[in-house]
Design a protein around this nucleic acid. Structure first.
Length: 438
RNA sequence: GGACGGGUGGCCGAGUGGUUUAAGGCAGCGGUCUUGAAAACCGCCGCAGGUGCAAGCCUGCCGUGAGUUCGAAUCUCACCCCGUCCGCCA
């Protein structure tokens, strides 16, 4: 999930406070492995005091309730004792609020627990390559063009035009470029629909409350989302926001799980690194993405996570693109993921002589997001609701997929072979550069 | 943008200051009856936190947040959301 690379608002997601209290040592170790500097002992201290205060407040409430409903006392008698009790309740409530806020401030920064097999490491350099597909990394007997050069040659990508009307980080896709994006989108939606993922075209904007609930905050100094001025709306960074928002505060039947969704939306991100990385389609402010979102039971989530990875691989296998699979290390997991795999496709135009570049990401967030979103499920009519597990994975991020297709399949004259699965959608098997102007 | 109306448990829906510890209905669960099923009847039937081995008990929750009061679903203020009609519009 690309989004977890963004700085997260502390508080967007959380662990259960009782779990942290009962497993303070394990939680502290997990924080250390994930590179999160947190004083768990301090949390335990505050939380313990918070509980005590909560108890005292409940006692006072009980006494007040008994007084108010007492039949053998006059209103005057009630009034005197009642005022006293109200003052006690108010002071306890104030104390409780403070403790609660302090405890939450710490709790909200505690990351999810980690799969025991995830590699322990500090940053993306410690991510572990666990596999590659059978497509060989191509070699070329001619000078390699990057996708920007190819796009220009074909007249299908116009970054200057995008810059003119919306600023750097925006672009036009034209002619076969526009058709290629639509073909890829169609292919991915069909592909996932056949595998049981119900296509959803979602709003591209969401209320601030949904942004908050799903952990993508529209406010604050580290915000990475665009807000609509004068409206309670922001542009979404991924359809995960609207899709999770759709299920927020619901109790599902176990029989309906897992829910498999293929979400299609535009994605908007304000992030933008400087330099070479900003070139072309690789990192942009707006792109289109087909996202897989699954809501599952705890029993199902590990298997579903493998399924999501398998789907991502199947998409890129079908596109005949070389890629490697990374098992993301503890320090690079972000806050919500229990385990995460990335696919990096080979991009011949990247760096010097080509580099792998991230094209998909799939996370098992276990119950971490569900707790915040308040998405639960019930086994039987008499059972208590439990938090679901949420998972997500990139079906296809159109911009980056096009980078990989253009760069890997280029030929000496700048022609680009199209993967077989796109022939029917495109009505052609290759892109040929337009004739150079005289 | 204008004018009205409305937010109560999974759903529908009573309820305008103290036997409401939220009536009643539907759905659901258990039972009686029945060859079986339906119907009928009886019982159970919200969420969260705390406490207890457990049965249970306690606290909070009637869109959200403040306020008035000994006591608020009910009164006051602000905000949010939903619906209908009109205007505008692909």
């Amino acid at each position: 999930m690309l989004v977890l690379r963004l700085p997260e608002r502390p508080g967007s997601r959380m662990l259960d406070r009782n779990f942290v209290l009962a497993n303070a040592d394990a939680v502290a170790l997990n924080c250390k492995n994930r590179g999160v500097d947190l004083d768990i002992a301090r949390f335990v201290e505050i939380e313990t005091e918070r509980r005590k205060t909560d108890q005292a407040l409940q006692d006072a409430q009980r006494t007040s309730n008994a007084l108010a409903s007492a039949k053998d006392l006059s209103v005057d008698q009630k009034r005197e004792k009642g005022r006293e009790l109200r003052e006690l309740r108010e002071s306890l409530k104030a104390k409780l609020d403070t403790l609660q806020a302090d405890a939450d401030a710490l709790l909200l920064r505690v990351p999810n627990m980690t799969h025991p097999d995830s590699p322990v490491g500090r940053d993306d350099k410690d991510n572990k390559e666990i596999d590659r597909n059978a497509v060989p990394i191509p070699t070329y007997a001619f000078p390699v063009r990057d996708h920007v050069a190819l796009g220009e040659l074909h007249g299908i990508l116009d970054t200057e035009g995008g810059s003119k009307v919306a600023g750097p980080g925006f672009y036009f896709l034209k002619g076969d470029g526009a058709r290629l994006e639509l073909a890829l989108q169609n292919f991915a939606v069909e592909f996932l629909a056949k595998r049981g993922y119900v296509p959803h075209i979602t709003p591209d904007l969401a209320r601030d409350s949904v942004m908050q609930g799903t952990g993508f905050t529209p406010r604050g100094n580290e915000t990475n989302t665009y807000r609509i001025e004068g409206e309670d709306l922001s542009l979404i960074a991924t359809s995960e926001i609207t899709l999770c928002g759709l299920y927020q505060d619901t109790i599902l039947d176990e029989a309906d799980l897992p829910i498999r969704i293929a979400g299609v939306s535009h994605c908007f991100r304000t992030e933008r690194a400087a330099g070479r990385a900003t070139r072309g389609l690789y990192r942009v402010h707006q792109f289109t993405k087909v996202e897989m979102v699954v809501i599952a039971t705890p029993d199902q989530s590990e298997e579903i996570h493998r399924e999501l990875l398998a789907n991502e691989r199947a998409v890129f296998d079908a596109l005949e693109l070389p890629y490697r699979v990374l098992d993301i290390c503890t320090g690079d997991l972000g806050g919500a993921a229990y385990r995460k795999y990335d696919l990096e496709a080979w991009m011949p135009g990247r760096g010097n002589g080509g580099e792998f570049g991230e094209v998909t990401s799939t996370s098992n967030c276990t119950d971490f997001q569900a707790r915040r979103l308040n998405i639960r499920y019930r086994r039987g009519p008499k059972d208590k609701p439990n938090f679901v597990h949420t998972l997500n994975g990139t079906g296809i991020a159109l911009g980056r997929a096009m980078v990989a297709i253009l760069e890997n399949n280029q030929e000496a004259d700048g022609s680009v072979r199209l993967p077989k699965v796109l022939h029917a959608f495109m009505g052609q098997d290759r892109l040929v550069p337009r004739a150079p102007k005289a």
